[in-house]
Nucleic acid binder design. Structure first.
Length: 270
DNA sequence: ATAAATGTTAAGAA
DNA sequence: CTTCTTAACATTTA
């Protein structure tokens, strides 16, 4: 699940804000049983993190590849990871990584890197991109510390729209291309959101899981690319690597929100 | 029906 | 200490 889908999840959960949890069930009920009786105050997302805020704790839910949620409509013969029952209905979470955050989320998350947030800071993203010139665009677009919420669909569609080869080095792009990159990830993420909301996402895919390039009618190439080796779908005819070489820069580390992971396992992390 | 895939972390190796 | 590799998790779709 990519960032835009989580924004929709938050919207779907809005009717539950201000309501008290009557019962907790599911595979992880034991871990999160203390939520019973607590008020569900708000749901927010940061990138691919769904944050459920309760009176004195926040649950962080990550759906990874296969996770899902249901509202008042449980899947048959399936035990949810977590089930939250309210007077007005029940929310079910399946195959996701859930963890309780005890620190204030404002201290953990920086919404200027969240593509779907009004606080999104494109200049900051541009600076971050320019700090990693040797990185391939396909990897840069998956970097959650720069483009929180971007995933493999967004990556492929953005590269197609910009007519860029997935393996082009970020540093080989012109300044204008780097700027266009940052702009397009943001724009496409919001289009993704609009399409998904009305059930039109898949029909708007132009290259992802397509067989033929809609521009050139050439067969689409599909193979793992970049350090991350995630699959890229691209047109070998119109998605090109730029020939221009740009100025190299020194790479520096960036900090990002604490790690994901199944809370059932170790919590010990100083 | 076998495989691939809207993703990330942990542990150990190099 | 950093970076890389592998495995693990878990489910739907083609």
């Amino acid at each position: 699940m990519e960032g835009p889908s989580l924004v929709i999840a938050c919207e779907e959960l809005a009717p539950w804000f201000g309501h008290r949890v009557d019962a907790v069930d599911g595979a992880q009920a034991k871990t999160f049983g203390s939520l019973r009786g607590h008020e569900f105050t708000e749901a927010k997302s940061w990138g691919k993190h769904l944050l459920l805020r309760f009176e004195d704790v926040t649950l962080r839910i990550h759906f990874l590849m296969f996770g899902s949620y249901r509202i008042n409509d449980p899947r048959e013969n399936r035990i949810p990871k977590l089930e939250l029952r309210f007077g007005r209905g029940t929310i079910y979470f399946y195959s996701c990584a859930i963890r309780a955050l005890d620190r204030k989320i404002e201290d953990i998350y920086d919404w200027t890197t969240d593509l779907m947030s009004p606080a999104w800071d494109s200049k900051k993203a541009l600076d971050a991109v320019r700090e990693i010139p040797k990185t391939m665009v396909c990897d840069a677009l998956m970097d959650q510390t720069i483009f929180a919420g971007s995933g493999n669909i967004i990556k492929n569609e953005v590269l197609f729209n910009l007519e860029l080869h997935p393996e082009a080095r970020v540093g080989a792009l012109s300044a204008a291309q780097q700027q266009a990159l940052v702009k397009e990830v943001h724009t496409y993420s919001h289009q993704f959101y609009e399409w998904k909301k009305v059930g039109q996402l898949k029909r708007n895919w132009r290259i992802f899981r397509k067989k033929v390039c809609p521009r050139c009618h050439v067969p689409v190439k599909k193979r793992p690319t970049g350090k991350l080796e995630r699959f890229s779908h691209y047109c070998t005819s119109c998605q090109l690597k730029p020939k221009t070489k740009a100025t190299p820069k020194i790479t520096t580390g960036r900090k990002h929100p604490s790690s994901i992971g199944d809370s059932s396992s170790r919590r010990l992390r100083h």
